[in-house]
Design a protein around this nucleic acid. Sequence first.
DNA 1: GCATAAGTACGATGAATGTCAAACTTCGAC
DNA 2: GTCGAAGTTTGACATTCATCGTACTTATGC
Lengths: 101, 101
Amino acid sequence: MGRTPPHPEVSQFDLQQVLEALVDPVRRSIVTQLDAAAEDIKCGDFDIPVSKSTATHHFNVLREAGLIRQYYVGTSRMNTLRRADMEEAFPGLLDALTRAR
Amino acid sequence: MGRTPPHPEVSQFDLQQVLEALVDPVRRSIVTQLDAAAEDIKCGDFDIPVSKSTATHHFNVLREAGLIRQYYVGTSRMNTLRRADMEEAFPGLLDALTRAR
DNA sequence: GCATAAGTACGATGAATGTCAAACTTCGAC
DNA sequence: GTCGAAGTTTGACATTCATCGTACTTATGC
Protein backbone atom coordinates (compact mmCIF):
# COMPACT_ATOMS: atom_id res chain seq x y z
CA MET A 1 0.00 0.00 0.00
CA GLY A 2 1.50 3.30 -1.03
CA ARG A 3 2.26 5.41 1.97
CA THR A 4 0.78 8.76 1.08
CA PRO A 5 -1.06 9.13 -2.21
CA PRO A 6 -0.36 12.22 -4.33
CA HIS A 7 -2.39 15.34 -3.64
CA PRO A 8 -2.61 18.30 -6.01
CA GLU A 9 -1.68 21.76 -4.81
CA VAL A 10 -4.21 24.55 -4.81
CA SER A 11 -2.52 26.16 -7.80
CA GLN A 12 -3.19 22.99 -9.73
CA PHE A 13 -6.88 22.76 -8.98
CA ASP A 14 -8.98 22.59 -12.11
CA LEU A 15 -12.63 23.63 -12.18
CA GLN A 16 -13.55 21.08 -14.79
CA GLN A 17 -12.03 18.30 -12.72
CA VAL A 18 -13.71 19.52 -9.53
CA LEU A 19 -17.10 19.64 -11.21
CA GLU A 20 -16.64 16.19 -12.70
CA ALA A 21 -15.86 14.96 -9.19
CA LEU A 22 -18.87 16.67 -7.65
CA VAL A 23 -21.41 15.68 -10.27
CA ASP A 24 -21.52 12.09 -9.08
CA PRO A 25 -24.12 11.63 -6.33
CA VAL A 26 -22.01 9.14 -4.40
CA ARG A 27 -19.03 11.45 -4.37
CA ARG A 28 -21.14 14.45 -3.45
CA SER A 29 -22.55 12.39 -0.61
CA ILE A 30 -19.04 11.71 0.61
CA VAL A 31 -18.27 15.43 0.54
CA THR A 32 -21.51 16.21 2.34
CA GLN A 33 -20.81 13.66 5.04
CA LEU A 34 -17.32 15.08 5.52
CA ASP A 35 -18.70 18.58 5.66
CA ALA A 36 -21.18 17.62 8.34
CA ALA A 37 -18.67 15.68 10.44
CA ALA A 38 -16.55 17.14 13.16
CA GLU A 39 -13.63 14.81 12.60
CA ASP A 40 -11.99 13.00 9.73
CA ILE A 41 -13.71 9.86 8.52
CA LYS A 42 -12.17 6.59 7.43
CA CYS A 43 -13.17 5.17 4.07
CA GLY A 44 -15.06 2.28 5.55
CA ASP A 45 -17.20 4.48 7.77
CA PHE A 46 -19.01 6.37 5.05
CA ASP A 47 -22.60 5.58 4.32
CA ILE A 48 -22.48 4.89 0.60
CA PRO A 49 -24.30 2.24 -1.45
CA VAL A 50 -21.36 0.86 -3.44
CA SER A 51 -18.80 -1.91 -3.17
CA LYS A 52 -15.37 -1.37 -1.66
CA SER A 53 -13.64 -1.27 -5.00
CA THR A 54 -16.06 1.31 -6.31
CA ALA A 55 -15.59 3.32 -3.14
CA THR A 56 -11.84 3.29 -3.68
CA HIS A 57 -12.43 4.68 -7.14
CA HIS A 58 -14.59 7.52 -5.84
CA PHE A 59 -12.10 8.48 -3.15
CA ASN A 60 -9.37 8.60 -5.76
CA VAL A 61 -11.40 10.92 -7.96
CA LEU A 62 -12.11 13.23 -5.03
CA ARG A 63 -8.49 13.27 -3.92
CA GLU A 64 -7.13 13.90 -7.40
CA ALA A 65 -9.52 16.82 -7.82
CA GLY A 66 -8.26 18.28 -4.54
CA LEU A 67 -11.49 17.92 -2.63
CA ILE A 68 -10.18 15.60 0.06
CA ARG A 69 -6.90 14.82 1.74
CA GLN A 70 -6.12 11.21 2.59
CA TYR A 71 -3.66 9.64 5.00
CA TYR A 72 -3.21 6.25 6.54
CA VAL A 73 -3.75 5.24 10.12
CA GLY A 74 -2.92 1.58 10.34
CA THR A 75 -4.85 -0.16 7.61
CA SER A 76 -7.46 2.55 7.59
CA ARG A 77 -7.48 5.46 5.24
CA MET A 78 -8.65 8.69 6.77
CA ASN A 79 -10.31 11.47 4.81
CA THR A 80 -10.41 15.22 5.36
CA LEU A 81 -12.33 17.80 3.40
CA ARG A 82 -9.96 20.43 1.97
CA ARG A 83 -12.33 23.28 2.70
CA ALA A 84 -9.83 26.11 2.92
CA ASP A 85 -7.99 25.02 -0.20
CA MET A 86 -11.20 24.79 -2.18
CA GLU A 87 -12.34 28.15 -0.86
CA GLU A 88 -9.07 29.64 -2.02
CA ALA A 89 -9.33 28.14 -5.49
CA PHE A 90 -13.08 28.49 -6.06
CA PRO A 91 -14.61 30.86 -3.51
CA GLY A 92 -18.13 30.02 -2.51
CA LEU A 93 -18.40 26.86 -4.56
CA LEU A 94 -18.20 24.27 -1.82
CA ASP A 95 -20.47 26.30 0.43
CA ALA A 96 -23.07 26.67 -2.28
CA LEU A 97 -23.05 22.93 -2.86
CA THR A 98 -23.09 21.72 0.71
CA ARG A 99 -25.87 24.17 1.54
CA ALA A 100 -27.96 23.26 -1.47
CA ARG A 101 -30.52 20.77 -0.43
CA MET B 1 -41.32 24.66 -34.49
CA GLY B 2 -42.96 24.51 -31.07
CA ARG B 3 -43.86 27.96 -29.90
CA THR B 4 -42.51 28.09 -26.40
CA PRO B 5 -40.63 25.09 -25.02
CA PRO B 6 -41.37 23.93 -21.47
CA HIS B 7 -39.46 25.57 -18.63
CA PRO B 8 -39.27 24.17 -15.10
CA GLU B 9 -40.33 26.30 -12.16
CA VAL B 10 -37.89 27.18 -9.43
CA SER B 11 -39.56 24.73 -7.06
CA GLN B 12 -38.76 21.98 -9.52
CA PHE B 13 -35.08 22.75 -9.87
CA ASP B 14 -32.91 19.76 -9.07
CA LEU B 15 -29.30 20.12 -7.95
CA GLN B 16 -28.24 16.90 -9.62
CA GLN B 17 -29.71 18.03 -12.91
CA VAL B 18 -28.14 21.48 -12.64
CA LEU B 19 -24.72 20.01 -11.95
CA GLU B 20 -25.04 17.58 -14.84
CA ALA B 21 -25.86 20.54 -17.04
CA LEU B 22 -22.95 22.61 -15.79
CA VAL B 23 -20.31 19.90 -15.90
CA ASP B 24 -20.13 20.02 -19.67
CA PRO B 25 -17.56 22.58 -20.87
CA VAL B 26 -19.63 23.65 -23.86
CA ARG B 27 -22.69 24.25 -21.72
CA ARG B 28 -20.69 26.05 -19.07
CA SER B 29 -19.28 28.23 -21.82
CA ILE B 30 -22.80 29.09 -22.92
CA VAL B 31 -23.68 30.08 -19.36
CA THR B 32 -20.51 32.13 -19.06
CA GLN B 33 -21.19 33.96 -22.29
CA LEU B 34 -24.72 34.72 -21.17
CA ASP B 35 -23.46 35.91 -17.82
CA ALA B 36 -21.01 38.28 -19.46
CA ALA B 37 -23.49 39.64 -21.99
CA ALA B 38 -25.73 42.62 -21.43
CA GLU B 39 -28.56 41.32 -23.59
CA ASP B 40 -30.07 37.98 -24.51
CA ILE B 41 -28.22 35.96 -27.12
CA LYS B 42 -29.64 33.92 -29.97
CA CYS B 43 -28.53 30.32 -30.34
CA GLY B 44 -26.56 30.96 -33.50
CA ASP B 45 -24.54 33.78 -31.99
CA PHE B 46 -22.75 31.80 -29.33
CA ASP B 47 -19.12 30.97 -29.76
CA ILE B 48 -19.14 27.21 -29.34
CA PRO B 49 -17.19 24.53 -31.23
CA VAL B 50 -20.02 22.15 -32.05
CA SER B 51 -22.49 21.51 -34.85
CA LYS B 52 -25.97 22.99 -34.88
CA SER B 53 -27.65 19.77 -33.86
CA THR B 54 -25.29 19.34 -30.95
CA ALA B 55 -25.88 22.95 -29.96
CA THR B 56 -29.62 22.34 -29.90
CA HIS B 57 -29.03 19.42 -27.55
CA HIS B 58 -26.97 21.57 -25.17
CA PHE B 59 -29.55 24.34 -25.11
CA ASN B 60 -32.23 21.80 -24.29
CA VAL B 61 -30.22 20.45 -21.38
CA LEU B 62 -29.65 23.93 -20.00
CA ARG B 63 -33.29 24.88 -20.37
CA GLU B 64 -34.59 21.69 -18.80
CA ALA B 65 -32.30 22.22 -15.83
CA GLY B 66 -33.67 25.73 -15.40
CA LEU B 67 -30.47 27.56 -16.22
CA ILE B 68 -31.76 29.42 -19.26
CA ARG B 69 -35.05 30.71 -20.59
CA GLN B 70 -35.74 30.44 -24.31
CA TYR B 71 -38.19 32.24 -26.57
CA TYR B 72 -38.57 32.71 -30.28
CA VAL B 73 -38.05 35.85 -32.29
CA GLY B 74 -38.76 34.95 -35.88
CA THR B 75 -36.71 31.89 -36.69
CA SER B 76 -34.20 32.75 -34.01
CA ARG B 77 -34.25 31.36 -30.54
CA MET B 78 -33.21 33.80 -27.86
CA ASN B 79 -31.60 32.78 -24.58
CA THR B 80 -31.62 34.40 -21.16
CA LEU B 81 -29.76 33.33 -18.06
CA ARG B 82 -32.18 32.65 -15.20
CA ARG B 83 -29.92 34.24 -12.62
CA ALA B 84 -32.51 35.20 -10.05
CA ASP B 85 -34.25 31.83 -10.22
CA MET B 86 -30.98 29.98 -9.79
CA GLU B 87 -29.98 32.24 -6.93
CA GLU B 88 -33.27 31.46 -5.25
CA ALA B 89 -32.88 27.72 -5.67
CA PHE B 90 -29.15 27.38 -5.09
CA PRO B 91 -27.75 30.54 -3.52
CA GLY B 92 -24.22 31.38 -4.54
CA LEU B 93 -23.81 28.51 -6.95
CA LEU B 94 -23.99 30.38 -10.23
CA ASP B 95 -21.83 33.19 -8.90
CA ALA B 96 -19.19 30.78 -7.70
CA LEU B 97 -19.07 29.13 -11.10
CA THR B 98 -19.06 32.20 -13.30
CA ARG B 99 -16.38 33.78 -11.14
CA ALA B 100 -14.21 30.71 -11.09
CA ARG B 101 -11.58 31.08 -13.65
C1' DG C 1 -44.51 30.85 -54.43
C1' DC C 2 -39.57 30.11 -53.76
C1' DA C 3 -35.24 30.42 -51.74
C1' DT C 4 -32.74 31.03 -47.71
C1' DA C 5 -31.87 31.12 -42.82
C1' DA C 6 -32.35 29.12 -38.18
C1' DG C 7 -33.23 25.43 -35.59
C1' DT C 8 -35.11 20.64 -34.62
C1' DA C 9 -35.57 15.58 -34.90
C1' DC C 10 -33.57 11.27 -35.60
C1' DG C 11 -30.54 7.68 -35.73
C1' DA C 12 -25.88 6.09 -35.41
C1' DT C 13 -21.43 6.01 -33.35
C1' DG C 14 -17.58 6.23 -30.20
C1' DA C 15 -15.70 7.42 -25.92
C1' DA C 16 -16.26 7.91 -20.86
C1' DT C 17 -17.31 6.23 -16.69
C1' DG C 18 -19.74 3.94 -12.73
C1' DT C 19 -20.15 -0.61 -11.31
C1' DC C 20 -18.76 -5.15 -9.62
C1' DA C 21 -16.19 -9.54 -8.48
C1' DA C 22 -12.00 -11.71 -7.63
C1' DA C 23 -7.36 -11.73 -6.46
C1' DC C 24 -3.89 -9.28 -4.09
C1' DT C 25 -1.34 -6.31 -0.49
C1' DT C 26 -0.60 -4.31 4.05
C1' DC C 27 -1.00 -3.76 8.62
C1' DG C 28 -2.31 -5.02 13.35
C1' DA C 29 -3.49 -8.54 16.78
C1' DC C 30 -2.89 -12.72 18.84
C1' DG D 1 3.92 -16.67 11.90
C1' DT D 2 -1.05 -16.65 11.00
C1' DC D 3 -5.33 -14.70 10.58
C1' DG D 4 -8.54 -11.11 9.70
C1' DA D 5 -9.65 -6.38 8.59
C1' DA D 6 -9.19 -2.59 5.29
C1' DG D 7 -8.20 -1.10 0.95
C1' DT D 8 -6.26 -1.59 -3.80
C1' DT D 9 -5.73 -3.38 -8.39
C1' DT D 10 -7.27 -5.25 -12.44
C1' DG D 11 -10.32 -6.57 -15.95
C1' DA D 12 -14.87 -6.84 -17.66
C1' DC D 13 -19.38 -4.98 -18.48
C1' DA D 14 -23.28 -1.85 -19.17
C1' DT D 15 -24.93 2.52 -19.64
C1' DT D 16 -24.75 7.09 -20.54
C1' DC D 17 -23.86 10.89 -23.33
C1' DA D 18 -21.54 14.20 -26.53
C1' DT D 19 -21.09 14.29 -31.23
C1' DC D 20 -22.27 14.39 -36.09
C1' DG D 21 -24.77 14.18 -40.69
C1' DT D 22 -28.98 14.12 -42.94
C1' DA D 23 -33.54 15.16 -43.43
C1' DC D 24 -37.20 18.00 -41.87
C1' DT D 25 -39.86 22.24 -40.23
C1' DT D 26 -40.82 26.98 -39.68
C1' DA D 27 -40.39 31.73 -40.67
C1' DT D 28 -38.65 35.71 -43.35
C1' DG D 29 -37.82 38.26 -47.70
C1' DC D 30 -38.17 38.93 -52.35
